[in-house]
Nucleic acid binder design. Structure first.
Length: 373
RNA sequence: GGAGGGGUUCCCGAGCGGCCAAAGGGGGCAGACUGUAAAUCUGUUAUCUGACGAUUUCGAUGGUUCGAAUCCAUCCCCCUCCA
């Protein structure tokens, strides 16, 4: 039996967006889904029970970080990542491909793989597709990513092409190295920067390799939103209908809705947790910087339309006070709220697909949030 | 009573004749953050002006000097030690 099954429930008549269910060894989740990021085997500031309370169905963790610390062998000894971190629902692990991008001054890329200098102690490590598979097999996540190169924006066509072709070769090596196919589903990652022909080439090459799901990477790295949407429009139609499509690293409300409209099923992003820790919250009426002085005497909740733990029990004035005083509860509450906000947003997106009105929902949401239509 | 040290912009604290509206912290204010090297980073913080620039600041008052937070005099506070 395969580790992953995608079930298409229905398509929105208004937009073509997909409502589906993904089945994994640790349970199922409805799509489109937002996955909170827990890089170091923890969603910063949240316990697994709290994540369940806000109805998170699947979370993300990271190959590079867990390999560096505490080490994949240790996680395996602990009984795998689920057991180690006390999370029994699905987990997706990223391959370290994003660290190829974000730790660019600490690494060197060759055909064989990527040599990293550890950001922790400077020690040298070589990541190959085979090692990345071994690490993720040790971690035991339900959905694993092939090792890719996430290139910066802007990138010239020539480099983007060479890079995507190497990413395809690495994907092939990943597929050959990955033996635990009944417990862990391996996704290939589409690259190609903002070039239509390259995105199409990448998608075709990966589909040829037949993965149980497909990721779209290398977007939301600084390119204009319009470019990202165009890339989705030319990529998604080339991906098989019976497999989930995962847009990596995307998490602002507009991107989530626009992504769903273009046929994306899965999203992850550090945005809600990071901006929460830095004092910004997303509300039904747009973003607010909760630290700002104008909320010092605002005794209303962060978002009057939200029923999360923070909004049920605390005021903007109190949360602002906690943030200013650098109390951990402050960033816990903003994190909690932001995650609940996005998880609720995706619930509404799924309902709108069910009701064939995602286009209307988009317009209503954009107007309330303050986005341009 | 004697000997010494000190009072700097919201706070702490550097500066010790011009390059000083005054380093550096802190605090305040504002902004950014999108497969997490992030509870981080950036900007700003005398007044007036869009800007050039102008004006008032370094305990107080007077003075020396082309020019003073910086030198001198007097005064007012604070701290340490001795009696």
């Amino acid at each position: 039996m395969a580790a992953l099954k995608y079930e298409l429930i229905k398509k929105c008549k208004q937009t073509g967006a997909r409502l589906g269910v993904v089945h994994t060894p640790h349970g199922s989740f409805e799509t489109p889904v937002f996955m909170p990021v827990g890089t170091q085997a923890t969603v910063k500031g949240m316990t697994p029970d709290e994540l369940k309370e806000i109805d998170a169905k699947i979370i993300l963790s990271n190959t590079y970080h867990l390999y560096m610390r505490p080490g994949n062998e240790l996680v395996r000894e602990a009984g795998g990542l689920h057991s180690f971190m006390h999370w029994d629902r699905p987990i997706l692990t990223d391959s370290g491909g994003f660290q190829v991008f974000s730790l660019s001054d600490l690494r060197n890329i060759t055909e064989e793989g990527v040599t990293f200098k550890s950001h922790i102690d400077g020690s040298k490590h070589v990541f190959t597709p085979e090692l990345v598979m071994k690490i993720q097999n040790d971690l035991g996540s339900d959905i694993i990513m092939s090792f890719d190169e996430c290139i910066p924006y802007p990138a010239d066509h020539d480099y983007a092409k060479k890079s995507l072709e190497r990413t395809t070769r690495w994907a092939k090596r990943c597929k050959e190295a990955h033996k635990n196919t009944e417990k862990q589903a391996l996704f290939g990652i589409v690259q190609g920067s903002v070039y239509k022909d390259l995105r199409e080439q990448s998608a075709r090459e990966l589909v040829e390799l037949d993965f149980p799901g497909y990721s779209i990477g290398g977007l939301s790295v600084g390119e204009p939103a319009e470019d990202m949407y165009k890339m989705l429009e030319c990529t998604v139609p080339l991906l098989p209908e019976d497999r989930p499509r995962y847009l990596m690293g995307v998490g602002s409300p507009d991107y989530l809705i626009e992504g769903a409209i273009r046929g994306i099923d899965m999203f992850d992003c550090v945005l809600p947790t990071r901006i929460g820790r830095n004092g910004t919250v997303m509300t039904s009426r747009g973003r607010i910087i909760a630290r700002d002085a104008k909320y010092a005497r605002d005794f209303s909740p962060l978002d009057p339309e939200c029923d999360c733990y923070a909004c049920r029990n605390y005021t903007r004035a109190y949360i602002r006070h906690l943030l200013k005083a650098q109390e951990v509860l402050g960033i816990r509450l903003t994190t909690w709220h932001n995650l609940k906000f996005l998880l609720d947003l995706m619930k509404k997106v799924r309902q709108a697909i069910m009701d064939d009105r995602l286009g209307d929902f988009r317009n209503e949401f954009f107007a309330a949030y303050g986005y341009k239509l």
